[in-house]
């Protein structure tokens, strides 16, 4: 492994191996996520992409029986290093989940501010923060008159954008998105993709998706994960999105992106 990291490398995984109990599910994942770029992780179900994305902000270790080796470097610092508090890692590296999960006991406004309160930080000029966050997630116009209503009164697509806004309010350096559109209709999906494009100007984004078109629309680089015949999942191909989809090197990548399996 070269010590020289590409100058704009922001987040980087080195030899990530993952186990659940005795089962080896991911093997030697080396990926580099450059600053302010969108990286798409694609691959069939069960290939370990969701598992991998959870190792990037230490959510993985919350699963009983989880094991890991390797390093994840954020600006050159290993997030699994000695004395690193996972809580601090998750503040810097935010996450949006597959299913919209706003806090049901809180209003829309409280949901946006929940991150700050949950991480024990003071909230100054709350109204401004709520507005900017909701604007960046392009949901402000839909909810500006009902900020004090329960978050669960929103539709699924709105809830997911609220969750994105909630993560943005924390001003993370990296945003991880685990199939954020899989439960949404095409209209909501389009709006979230627009949001991704907009916020990628100021943060690094990693997105897991099953939607080939989505990967091509939103990402600059793509990693194709595959787990074959009981072997642990691994990265088959990693490169610029255009190359992975139009000029894949590996025949398995070609088969997958052209819909021959998966």
């Amino acid at each position: 492994m070269t010590q020289l990291i590409t100058p704009q490398a922001h987040l980087r995984s080195e030899d990530i191996n993952v186990w659940f109990g005795e089962r080896h599910v991911l093997s030697d994942v080396n990926l580099t996520f450059p600053e302010n770029q969108v990286t798409a992780l694609i691959g069939p179900s069960g290939c370990g992409k969701s598992t991998f994305i959870r190792t990037l902000n230490r959510m993985h270790e919350l699963i009983p029986g989880a094991g890991l080796s390797g390093a994840v470097l954020l600006d050159g610092q290993d997030i699994y290093g000695d004395g690193v508090n996972p809580v601090d890692v998750r503040i810097k590296i935010g996450m949006v989940f597959q299913k919209p999960n706003p806090f049901p006991t809180m209003s829309i406004k409280e949901n946006i501010l929940s991150g700050l309160k949950l991480s024990g930080r003071k909230v100054t000029n709350a109204d401004e923060l709520v507005e900017t966050s909701l604007r960046r997630a392009s949901i402000w116009n839909e909810v500006k008159d009902r900020l004090n209503e329960p978050a669960i009164s929103l539709s699924g697509g709105q809830q997911q954008r609220l969750c994105i806004a909630r993560s943005l309010a924390m001003e993370p350096q990296v945003l991880l998105m685990d199939e954020p559109c899989s439960a949404l209709d095409p209209g909501s999906t389009r709006r979230i993709e627009e949001t991704i494009e907009e916020i990628s100007e100021s943060m690094t984004i990693v997105i897991v998706t099953h939607n080939m078109q989505q990967a091509q629309r939103v990402s600059q680089q793509t990693a194709f994960f595959l787990a074959e015949d009981g072997n642990p999942g691994t990265v088959v191909e990693f490169g610029a999105t255009e190359d992975v989809f139009n000029r894949p090197i590996d025949p398995r990548t070609n088969d997958y992106v052209n819909g021959h399996f998966g």
């Binding site: 902000n57 959510m59 919350l62 809580v87 601090d88 998750r90 503040i91 935010g94 996450m95 989940f97 299913k99 999960n101 706003p102 806090f103 049901p104 929940s114 991150g115 949950l118 991480s119 969750c163 909630r166 993560s167 924390m170």
Partner: peptide, 11 residues
């Protein structure tokens, strides 16, 4: 989901 959401926000 709710627990993950909170932990994911750095709680």
């Amino acid at each position: 989901d709710l627990r993950s959401a909170a932990l994911g926000l750095g709680a």
